[in-house]
Amino acid sequence: MKVFKKWNKSLWTGVVFSLVAVAYLIGSYSIGPSAKRFGIFGAAFMPRLYGAVLLLCAVIQLVVGIRQYRKEKDKEIPEPTEAEKKEKLLNARNVAVGFVLIFLYMLSMKTLGFVISSAIFLFCLCNLLLPKTKDRKKAQLGIVLLAVLLPTLSYLFFKNVVYMALPAGPIFHGVI
């Protein structure tokens, strides 16, 4: 793990996109055969071309990254302070919580319906975004109002004005 700490962005880009390119190229071999009239320019032609060029670009990034890594290998990087470490960890945790929230929201939309799932999601996301410096208790009223009113009003607006049916869910089906 300590090795990764010294990896620069170019090195990461090279590694990540080399893997993507290889996986994509392998995937392109699962494309079925095209009609004879296409010759070698069948359905797999462009994916293979894109995959090859992506691999080339990723290798360029790898080379750039390795050169930079060698230059900076012996450089002394000051150890982050406890506060910096804590902040970094907290930021990473926030991102993970954000993605999990969005994932759960999308997962629950069909089951709970748009209004309920959105209200829960908005409440959680607003609280996640609320800066530490703010008076949390004072902000709750605004957050609850936003979480309840916005999804309900948007549901009604899109259903009755735009005629776009958002998922009602079994609980609210036929109610609003």
Binding site: M106, L125, P131, I143, L146, S154, F158
Partner: peptide
């Protein structure tokens, strides 16, 4: 922003 961004996200989903 803690009011605006979640509201915007909701409309993006719609």
């Amino acid at each position: 922003k803690y009011y605006m961004l979640p509201a915007i996200f909701l409309f993006c989903v719609i």
